[in-house]
Simulated assay, not measured.
Amino acid sequence: MSSDNKITFYDIASGPPLRTFAPNPWKTRFALNFKGLAYQTQWVHIPGIDSLRQKLGCPANRTHADGTPFHTLPMIQDPKTGKLIGDTFEIALYLDATYPDRPSLFHPLTAGLTAAWNAHVDGIFTSNVMLIDKMPFDPSVQKEVDAIFAKRAGVRSLDDFKLSVEQREQMFVAFEAALGDLAKAWQHTGGTTDYCWAQGGKQTQQPPPGREQGGAFLDGDEPAYADFIVGAWLKMLEASMKPEDWQRVRGWQGGLWGRLVDALSKWSEIK
């Protein structure tokens, strides 16, 4: 297929080799791969995102604390319809609406619920993002990227976010607890009883007899966009954490998060 007929997917450039590592672009890459759509990746360094979106006429979908525009990726440009879309969740909705003959990202009448899930999951991982070691930006733009992230966070330097050994361990414990609560959705419980998590990763209670047990995906043998949301954040941790820290997270909740990432590998191709 000619490149002129392919969707252009604008993703954040990493250091070599080029690969997806940020969570929102991962959500879109999962979605494109799952639907089996032809696309090509346009890699963009973070300092160039503002000028690119302005050049293409794609308005910012966020704002900084001071009210100034906050330009992010991903974006997609679809030659079939001429549409340019620059919000991750809106991209997923667009792909289902425009290509209904391909596998569906959303179960029927679940867009609102998935939007709430998206916000909840983003909140959990964002609150613990300081546990990453280093995101794999290209070294040639690292200083510019650090300045951009410091501005977004409202601090003078990213050094302000450095944690002590004790603080890091406390955050790991809190993160495990938060993911343990999230894991209830895979066990189809969702109540207050800690069937699938207790501090230290131990199961103090088991689901009652006859309770349906979930697999790698939330509902069924195939993923939905809700699975891609969590998987995208886990892929970011995989790319940005120290290997020993990532192995620690993979093993939480009986290895659920490792199983999810492994199960999503079918749709993880970087084109």
Results as ranks from 00 to 15, higher is better:
residue 177 A to F: 06
residue 186 W to Y: 08
residue 129 V to N: 14
residue 136 P to V: 12
residue 167 Q to E: 15
residue 116 A to Q: 13
residue 82 G to R: 03
residue 147 A to N: 08
residue 146 D to L: 04
residue 173 V to W: 09
residue 87 D to T: 04
residue 93 L to A: 04
residue 104 S to H: 01
residue 93 L to I: 10
residue 162 K to Y: 13
residue 77 Q to E: 10
residue 174 A to H: 14
residue 118 N to Y: 11
residue 79 P to A: 02
residue 134 K to H: 15
residue 98 T to F: 01
residue 197 W to N: 06
residue 140 S to K: 15
residue 126 T to R: 13
residue 140 S to Y: 07
residue 152 R to Y: 10
residue 152 R to G: 09
residue 142 Q to P: 11
residue 75 M to W: 02
residue 165 V to L: 11
residue 135 M to V: 13
residue 136 P to L: 12
residue 146 D to Q: 12
residue 76 I to H: 02
residue 176 E to F: 04
residue 179 L to W: 12
residue 141 V to M: 01
residue 155 V to K: 14
residue 104 S to W: 01
residue 169 E to Y: 08
residue 148 I to K: 10
residue 122 D to N: 12
residue 187 Q to I: 09
residue 182 L to N: 09
residue 186 W to L: 09
residue 126 T to P: 08
residue 151 K to A: 08
residue 82 G to K: 01
residue 144 E to F: 04
residue 109 L to N: 13
residue 170 Q to V: 06
residue 130 M to R: 15
residue 158 L to R: 13
residue 94 Y to C: 00
residue 74 P to L: 06
residue 117 W to Y: 05
residue 141 V to K: 08
residue 128 N to H: 15
residue 161 F to T: 11
residue 176 E to H: 14
residue 92 A to K: 02
residue 86 G to K: 09
residue 162 K to M: 08
residue 179 L to N: 07
residue 171 M to D: 09
residue 190 G to D: 06
residue 117 W to H: 13
residue 171 M to R: 13
residue 84 L to K: 15
